[in-house]
Amino acid sequence: MEKISKIILINFLFLFSLSCASQNSNYLTYNEYVGIKINGISLLDIYNTRGNKKAVNALFNRNFNYESLTLPDLYKNFKDKGLYIQFLKSSIECDYELDNLMILSSNETVEIKGHKFKLGDSVIKLQKYFFKNSKSGDFIFEINPSNNIFFSTMENFFLIVIENNVITKIQYFINT
Rank of each mutant, 00 (worst) to 15 (best):
K3C: 05
I4V: 06
S5A: 14
F12A: 12
F14S: 15
F14R: 05
A21V: 09
S22N: 13
Q23W: 06
S25P: 02
N26F: 12
Y27S: 11
T29D: 01
Y33W: 01
Y33M: 02
G35Q: 00
I41N: 12
I41G: 02
S42W: 04
T49E: 00
R50E: 15
R50F: 05
N57E: 05
A58C: 01
F60A: 12
R62S: 07
N63I: 13
F64Q: 08
Y66S: 02
E67F: 07
T70H: 12
N77V: 15
F78P: 00
L83Y: 05
Y84E: 15
I85F: 03
Q86M: 15
L88Q: 13
L88A: 10
L88Y: 04
S91A: 09
M102E: 15
S106Y: 08
N107K: 15
T109Q: 15
T109Y: 09
G114N: 08
K116C: 05
I124Y: 09
I124L: 11
Y129M: 09
Y129K: 11
F130V: 11
N133Q: 08
S134D: 13
F141C: 05
F141Q: 09
P145M: 10
I149F: 12
I149A: 06
E155M: 10
F157W: 03
F157A: 06
E163N: 13
N164T: 08
V166T: 15
T168M: 05
K169Q: 13
Y172I: 02
I174A: 13
T176Q: 09
